[in-house]
């Protein structure tokens, strides 16, 4: 299968100017690739830099060193190759719309927008019409056991677990060739964990390349094709 994502010698540190310019190294010499249809899970203890790596791939954190190359577009061959580490902001926004999805634990609620519209939004942004988006949103909300009476309500007042499932539905609804999973199953019950596992399997079958952070041992074993130990990417080596 073709390579979708390639991190080459990626390094990251934070300079804390408010603390006398202290430099906090995060990761260094990060190098791995992810193929289409493959799910790679980042391993290592808290603070090892797993989350920072995901955020760099998404363009949310800046990449200080190295390259983060992604293949755009959905086709087998993909489109062009873009280096996220040096891409223009509008290029990154474009990639977030059509190439890279991010499933996180926390829903940034948007006031006055119903749950089903929150979920449908990424699909609509990719060009689907609203009816189509809503239909698929309902299907996902239903699979994730979000009670139907909540679908037309804004999620701001939902319980933590309900909000989380709304956000998972939102992360999975659109087609992105690359999907980043940031603890999607944390604090879900067994039934919903199983739904997420199935969703991941479906994405794999569609050829989606995935990078995840998963603390849940069972889920990790079920979906990970490879586990990369982040502690091996020593920031000190880069310094």
């Amino acid at each position: 299968m073709p390579v979708r994502l390639y991190l080459n010698n990626v390094g990251k540190s934070f300079t804390m100017h408010l603390q006398g310019g202290a430099v906090i190294p995060v990761v260094g010499n990060v190098e791995f690739s992810v193929n289409a249809g493959e799910c790679v899970v980042l391993g290592g203890p808290s603070g090892a830099g797993k989350s920072s790596i995901l955020k760099m791939i998404y363009g949310n954190y800046r990449c200080d060193e190295g390259q983060i190359l992604v293949t755009t577009g959905a086709g087998e061959a993909g489109g062009e190759i873009v280096n996220i580490a040096g891409a223009e902001p509008r290029r990154i926004l474009q990639l977030r719309q059509d190439t890279i999805g991010y499933v996180s634990q926390f829903l940034r609620t948007i006031p006055r927008v119903s749950a089903e519209d929150v979920v449908a939004e990424p699909l609509v942004a990719q060009g689907a019409n609203e009816a189509e988006g809503r239909e698929k949103a309902r299907e996902l909300l239903s699979r994730l056991n979000v009670p139907e009476r909540l679908w037309t309500l804004p999620p701001a007042t939902f319980s933590g677990g309900e909000q989380q499932r709304v956000n998972i539905a939102r992360g999975f609804i659109a087609h992105y060739p690359i999907l980043l999973l940031d603890e999607p199953t944390a604090s879900l019950d067994a039934a919903n964990r199983a739904v997420v596992v199935r969703l991941v399997e479906e994405k794999k079958a569609e050829g989606v390349a995935m990078v995840g952070i998963l603390h849940d041992q069972d889920v990790r074993n079920e979906i990970a094709d490879r586990i990369i130990d982040v502690t091996s990417f020593h920031a000190e080596d880069a310094a």
Binding site: F14, T15, M16, H17, L18, K55, G59, N60, Y61, R62, P89, I92, L93
Partner: peptide, 21 residues
């Protein structure tokens, strides 16, 4: 200057870090 979430989540300049904090 940069992507909004990038500048706010990973501010680089001392002044920006002060603003965000």
């Amino acid at each position: 200057t940069g992507l909004t979430d990038q500048v706010l989540d990973d501010p680089r300049e001392p002044y920006t870090q002060l603003l965000v904090s």
